[in-house]
Amino acid sequence: MIRYTLTRLTSLILSLVAASVVIFAAIEVLPGDPASVMLGVNAQEDTLAALRTELGLDQAPVERYLTWVSGMVHGDFGVSYTYRTPVAQMIVDRLQVSLPLALYALALTVLIAFPVGIWAASRRGSFADVSVMGLTQLGVAIPNFWFAMLMVLVFAINLQWFSAGGFTGWGEGPLLAIKSLTLPAIALALPQASILARVMRSALLDTLSEDFIRTARAKGLTRRQALWRHALRNAMIPVLTIIGMQFSFLLAGGIIIENVFYLPGLGRLIFQAISARDLIVVESVVMLLVFAVVMVNFMVELAYAFVDPRLRVRR
């Protein structure tokens, strides 16, 4: 188990290093001169020179990369060119919206998908199964930001149960904050829950056709008992993989959904930064999101070992 964790940890660190190189190369090296990208074509030569010095562009790319990475390790993400504030502070502010939103959506996804998937698998082929799976087919196909707009139309504009957008902030009490995140979280969660429910169902059905389920039935377990006691845990491996991938979709999808609801999260930050050509901010936010994705994958792999004893010894 310790050996497994160490191996995974090594590959986690390698992935992060590789990802940071890719991000740095794509944003700071590929376009040529970041300073002229940031200031546009009509920039004055002396302003450009000043920015180049500020960004340390007179140094070699390798040195700049190392400075950037060691800064991040110490929590220093640089200073935003447009806002003139430390990027780290901006990220911390925006994370207070984005992270709760992603977790809220993930919780909803799992809470919806598990019961639906299990329920459909245990009634396989029934009218209920066929109709629920038909609904998930719709859920998979719906663009989440369009779904979000429809919800705004129905629940905010017509029924006026929720506000159409904006975020009250955590200072006004957690309930209000949660309420303003509810529509966005549902918009994110329903499509992902549809996918997860389908994965859950098919993983369960696959496991239910395994030999050991027949063995369990020969011991006197009912279908239901065989499903709960033997199939469910075995079906968790593919389900965990998908949950891991979904978290990254929820984070990225959050960027779009924040736009629909005018939420001051990382998504708004990144689009403002793109239109202001604030590369420092873009770079940092992308790195942060990739870091989150890689971390989640790492945790999923630890969860595999928790579920599957074969992994604890092998590798």
């Binding site: 984070l251 990225a252 873009v282 992308v286 999101l289």
Partner: peptide, 17 residues
């Protein structure tokens, strides 16, 4: 590694450059 970059993030990176 590539899988750790959702297509939206790749698009963000390309667009900013």
């Amino acid at each position: 590694l590539v899988f750790a970059f959702p297509s939206l993030l790749i698009a963000v990176m390309i667009t900013s450059a």
